[in-house]
Amino acid sequence: MKMLTLTEAKLLVREPLALFWGLVFPMALLAVMGVSASSIGGVPLVTVYEPIVIAFVGVAFGVQGLPVQVAGYRERRVLRRLATTPAGPLRVIGAQLIVSLTVVLAATIGVLAVGRLGFGVPLPAQPAGFALVVVLSATAMLALGLLIGALAPTARSAGAAGTVLFFPLMYFAGLWTPQLSAATRRIGQFTPLGAANQALRDAMAGGWPHPAALLVLGGCTLACAAAAARFFRWD
């Protein structure tokens, strides 16, 4: 398992495009917001965007990266080949989840560092609640990605499904319109990243995330993981 995880980590490091999109781009995006002088409701743009960018990191690695990897391994018969070894195919999926979760957390720390050191965004006033939401929203996105990877027959179709999902997920996270109307926000609360965005903002301001948001994220994680396990196609 250690060797598999190490190998998957090396392979990710060799994918410059994935690293740029998931690691460099979010920090750059936040920096652009930081340079801008505008604000929304008296809150600097960079502060508003920090939780949005953190949600983006989870989507980039979980919903866009992971499914392509998983479906690609099936398409190239890597999973079948592993099924003939004592290691079995399940462990390589486990290794991908470990590596993906690690980079999501690393990128999140990077984003927080850019915000704090570059633009004086205060660190979350409720760090434990913040960390809990970051982890839960990452697992929700990874479980969703795993479900896409479980069902998509090819890497190409997995990539397409991830891209299609990107837009509604990030819309409710507020990527295009950080200030959603009251009605949209109410709908958004029931989407994983709408819930995550609200909970991250609460935690940044010092409040404990709303239980409903934690429930949405935990529920998404469990439901997607269970469906992925149920419908996974090994070949």
Partner: peptide, 25 residues
């Protein structure tokens, strides 16, 4: 087992593939 049409990740080197599969046994 050598499977028909089974491939490896593009960016994995020969030695890495060997070390990885060796670790299973």
């Amino acid at each position: 087992v050598q499977l028909q049409e089974s491939q490896l990740p593009d960016r994995l080197t020969v030695a890495e593939a060997m070390r990885l599969y060796a670790s299973f046994y």
